[in-house]
Amino acid sequence: MATEIIPPNQITMANFKGRVEPDWCPGCGDYGVLAAVQKALVELQIPQHEVATISGIGCSSNFPGFIETYGMHTLHGRSLPVATGVKMANHALTVLVTGGDGDGFGIGCGHFVHAMRRNVDLTYMVMDNQIYGLTTGQTSPTSRLAMKTKTTPFGNVERPVNPIALALAAGATYVARGFSAEQKHLTELIKNAIQHKGFSFLDIFSPCVTYNHDNTVQWFKPRVKKLEDNPAYDSTNFEAAMEKSQLWGDEIPIGKFYERTDVPTLTELEPVLNPGPLVHQNNRIPAPVAKSFIDELM
């Protein structure tokens, strides 16, 4: 593993600058998410080689190419199983998972639910623009009712999924919502989510300036209300979180809805990982064990 000793505060934004400039449209919300993730990693002083950033496919899923870590573009909708495999093979890595609403709540929704109930220690950030960006503007699982898109020219008739309520119901141990235009708030949430032991889910409003003219930064700005601004809000209270998750309209809560820390992570529950990350373990079966396997058959 990391043989270099990195002195404190030596990790700067430069460490995480990607090899290529992002090719998102000017004004795309995803820039804000990228900056917040880089800031969070700097503030947590996590060296870039100890981070794996795994994405699906979509505009938002191009994320790993724009940040200097061990990155991987997987298939559309498959970031979570790949990231789960990475984490189980090397749980010393900080594993970030990035993607879009179509990637996570459409084609990848089955994996989303199961990753949460497994409580595998991943930080899953969905850049939710309520549209399919990369494929040029079709309806998404979070597109609002009546929204006109290329595939719903007469208005969307399917009700949108509620990612926060879904995550709560699926047993996620950390559920939050951010807004890419609220940089400081988002950076704090991401830091908090990375530090959470277990699956952390962050639904991040990341407006698409090109294909979603309904849910713009201007539309969100007056509506978003930070849960943290209400000192009475208790993010350990599941019922309160469920109730808040139902709010949509003039008031849309952002911030940490829910966190519980009493559920062991998948890697903690796996005795095979007790000696350390799987990737550093011996790959030979000891002779007495091999003999016992054969003896069973004799």
């Binding site: 991987m72 199983p81 495999g85 093979a89 089955g110 199961h114 799987l278 990737v279």
Partner: peptide, 26 residues
Amino acid sequence: ADIMVRQVEDEIGVINMAIGAAHAGV
């Protein structure tokens, strides 16, 4: 045998999880 064994939600998840583990080096 010190093998991590998982039953996954479907075969799409299966192959991708195996690829993730292989990518991490096992």
